[in-house]
Design a binder for these strands. Structure first.
Length: 328
DNA sequence: GCCCAGGTCTCCG
DNA sequence: CGGAGACCTGGG
């Protein structure tokens, strides 16, 4: 099934910059592939995998969307999904009024106009990729996620291009952790080239491999992912903390980028330093304190403020100054 | 070849 | 509870 439709700016409140939203380095998922002028990704709609191509000709214009799937899908389901993924239900005008009331935050608007939450299209993938992102470079964990998809995901072909879904918890919980385990499982029927590369460590995830397998198992056995959005923030946070490889920073990333909890304030070293610089005269405060500060001060806007703070710091030169200061 | 970045876990007081 | 050190890998 193939269909195309548009989303009109009248359907959402405030500006939207698709390119900025996809490429601002938000920690939920690798950026969507840019090809033939469209951002493209395989997403899940009504439990079906569906290839989305989306384009924004100009910032005031409509979004052009093409969708393709093996089964028939409701256009309205796809629209609802995309509105959710790109934060189009968030009222940016109201948010900007909030930013303008804080002299420290007001300047972020000019650097971030149209930047929205880029929400994960698959919450389980978001949980695993957030675990792989901890203590790891963006390039490395993006590559890991791609590897995991090609090794254990299901293949979908559209226009002779192959797309791979992210494997479900019941698949991921059974994958071999490292090459020795993979070898043990193959009953001495070695591959011709004697290479063992269908194990998690071969995807470059390092010591996080065991966390991911255990997390997949816990989710499969003890957690209903669809219950999480119904929980209070605190309850959801504690649920995430029980997963191995998930600390406060990763938990908040999962809650904000994966489930859309707006009161989460994920603090990595950089956000910690930015908060220290903007609100504590450069006196370095501990990440856990920065988190408490952000949640209290920004409440339901905390997630978005974090997003805007980081992008602003990158573009305004603040981040470079902080970097320089930390070298001395 | 060596050192560094980057959150979480584990261990120790 | 708070602090210190280990953890895996890619890049400079």
């Amino acid at each position: 099934m193939k269909l195309s439709f548009e989303i009109d700016p009248k359907e959402y409140s405030g500006p939207f910059n698709l390119d900025l939203t996809i490429n601002s380095g938000q920690t939920s998922q690798p950026a969507w592939l840019m090809k033939d002028g469209y951002f493209q990704e395989l997403i899940i709609v009504d439990n079906q995998h569906c290839l989305i191509k989306i384009k924004q000709e100009n910032l005031e214009g409509v979004l052009d969307i093409e969708a393709e799937s093996e089964e028939n899908l409701e256009l309205e389901s796809i629209r609802t999904n995309l509105m959710d993924i790109f934060g189009l239900n968030d009222d940016l005008n109201t948010f900007y009024n909030f930013l303008r009331k804080d002299s420290k935050l007001k300047p972020t608007i000019d650097f971030c106009t149209g930047l929205r939450l880029f929400k994960a299209h698959d919450p389980f993938e978001c949980i695993i990729s957030s675990i792989s992102s901890a203590n790891c470079s963006i390039i490395r964990w993006n590559r890991s996620i791609k590897d995991i998809k090609t090794k254990w995901g299901k293949e979908y072909k559209f226009d002779s291009t192959s797309w791979y879904s992210f494997p479900s918890p019941d698949i991921l919980k059974t994958v071999p952790e490292h090459d020795l385990e993979e070898m043990d499982r193959c009953d001495n029927k070695f591959p011709d080239d004697h290479s063992f590369d269908k194990n998690l460590k071969s995807c470059g995830v390092g010591y996080r491999a065991k966390y991911m397998i255990k997390t997949a198992e816990i989710i499969q056995n003890n957690i209903k992912i669809e219950d999480i959005p119904e929980m209070s923030y605190k309850q959801a946070f504690d649920t995430m903390l029980d997963l191995p490889g998930v600390g406060p920073k990763v938990a908040d990333c999962i809650l904000f980028y994966g489930f859309g909890f707006k009161e989460a304030f994920p603090v990595d070293v950089w956000i910690g330093r930015i908060v220290s610089d903007m609100y504590f005269k450069g006196n370095e405060i501990k990440p856990i304190k920065a988190r408490e500060f952000g949640m209290k001060k920004f409440s339901n806007n905390a997630g978005y403020v974090q997003l805007y703070m980081f992008h602003y710091a990158r573009k305004s030169g603040l981040l470079d100054r902080i970097r320089q200061k930390n070298k001395d």
